[in-house]
Design a protein around this nucleic acid. Structure first.
Lengths: 190, 190, 190, 190
DNA sequence: AATGAATGAGGATTCATTCAT
DNA sequence: TATGAATGAATCCTCATTCAT
């Protein structure tokens, strides 16, 4: 089916994320989303098969945006350490610039919906990242452990700092960012 | 008059966690919980003011259990490194032994309910832990950074390993546990 | 069955009337009444068979109080005109002194509950009043019409003035009372 | 899209009034109304925001109908006395022809909902009537008292006769109507 | 393509009442 | 006598979805 208006798609996504951040995944509804997006609920069903389908497509869409930004300007010219630092800086920037996206992902990825919908295919988006890590291990820069864990040590501290920042607990400034970059590197380097 | 039955309280908690793990925080309902707990919905309102109240009390209850186990057998006789290791091992054990508790906390803590309800007071449960970290910093064993971050590096890798384990991606065996204990220590030690 | 504590009966009545005036007959509930009267709901069922029974008994109780005060100091020594005036003044005083009672009666007496419960027996309470009117007709002081109507002309203007007073529209002062006493007398006198 | 069906609006109103007359304002429910009107409860919420909104709109609707019929064919060609008589006859006719409407108004107007909703604006519907009374006073036909009271003496006797009629106590025949018209005129004329 | 109308199913919560002490 | 616990039935209302235009 052809959609005249691609912006409607985006409006639905945007409205959904806003609402999820305001009231939570458990309290959104198609009619609330429609109202926020200035549409009729019925219109959503022109673009998506049902609620689940919409949420899944939103998830994939957001995850894609995130992964694209996270691996931005990562290339072989950089040292392993520089790669990790850039990845962490990219991640932090994405999260701070896109609070709604991030908070949506946080909620959605802890919900059983994820497993139910077999959404792990999104892993493919991070293939380049994995490859850099693999190379780092081969070069003897990184500990010879599961790539997933090496990445965990780079990614999670960033999310924790961002969340503390959003909650007003402490600012995600350059100083703190450098601190966790240092800690993460100490964790994963050989 | 009849006595209030403490086991009913527990049955409601148990039913709620089971359901949250099966269908997700967004899809539980008081009637589902009641059915699972073999009660009338109305009975839940004898024990709790409303759904929110029930969830909050459940959260506090579970968080308490978790914090108690996490700081189990941590004392001043241990070196800083041993403390961190034991904390990580305690955490892993709790999560693996109490999947339902953990999964519930994961979902609940990413939901806006948390902020809405100012549930950060639970921080007090971890005071002993914070004190150990502070002492470790004073002794020159740990990097002189925010305690919260030092703890993040100990806690999150554990959760990630546990989650991968639950999803069947790879086993949370002694080997892998030792690996992350090592990485975390490298991250936080001076 | 014997009730130890007669004041409980009264407390239930009082709580019910207060609530009816605050939220309306349609929004009272046994538990609200119990809470207001500082009792357990179950206790109400010690004193009354059920909600309907309670309301009926309350109605009769209030109607009795009202009728007693309305015919206060009416006797054969007074002229027909004086009788009517005193009846109107008694009515006004009762209403102004017992807003809750009056408002309860207003709501209850327009509801189908009334007919359903065949509560017209209360008519007996006003027998003395009817007799005075009959005598007034025989003496040639009053129009030879249905007694009920002659009384209507005395009673309703009072209620209307009282209601306007309660709503703050205008004060039920001596002047206005005299005006309606005059009008009513003009209406019913021969 | 389907068109909003005006008859549905009316069906909801009709069902509500019927039920209010059968079981009372305190015992109607949205589901009973829906059933009576052959609709799904949810459909009512397409037409009205909530129960209160529906009742208020019903009230205004009915009050409008009533006021229109009450002032039917009242014009300056009539003497003050004729005006009052016609008003009383109009009122009686409306009430007898529309028992449901009248009984609904009776219940609704004694309920706290009225005050809560500041529904006194309906007074504007009776402006022409007030003007006639004012003129009557100026011409020296009526007592120089509050218009509201002069009208009270015309209106309430009618309602009382109608209610007695509905209850089968005595018939609202021409004779009785003439009697109260006469009494009311005696009450208000100078 | 777009949408207001329509709805059965289900949401949280409260109800009047009874039970057990 | 008095009452907190317990509950099936009912409350108002919202849900995701489909219909008809």
């Amino acid at each position: 089916m052809r959609h005249k208006d691609d912006s409607k798609n985006e409006a639905i996504f945007q409205a959904t994320m806003e609402l999820i951040n305001e009231v939570g995944l458990s309290d959104i509804s198609m009619s609330k989303i429609a109202k926020r997006a200035n549409l009729s609920s019925a219109t959503i069903y022109v673009y998506f098969a049902n609620k689940e389908d919409m949420l899944v497509k939103l998830y994939i869409n957001v995850k894609e945006k995130m992964s694209r930004q996270m691996i931005h300007e990562l290339d072989d010219s950089l040292s392993t350490q520089e790669l990790c630092e850039r990845f962490m800086r990219n991640s932090m920037k994405f999260i701070l610039d896109n609070k709604d996206y991030f908070m949506f992902l946080e909620q959605f990825s802890t919900s059983p919906l994820m497993d139910k919908l077999c959404l792990e295919d999104t892993a493919t988006m991070f293939i380049p990242l994995h490859e850099f890590i693999e190379k780092g291990k081969q070069k003897g820069d990184l500990k010879p452990l599961d790539t997933v864990f090496l990445l965990t040590y780079c990614y999670f501290p960033v999310t924790q700092l961002a969340k503390a920042h959003f909650k007003g607990r402490f600012e995600a400034n350059e100083d703190r960012l450098q601190q966790i970059i240092r800690m993460s590197w100490d964790a994963i380097r050989l």
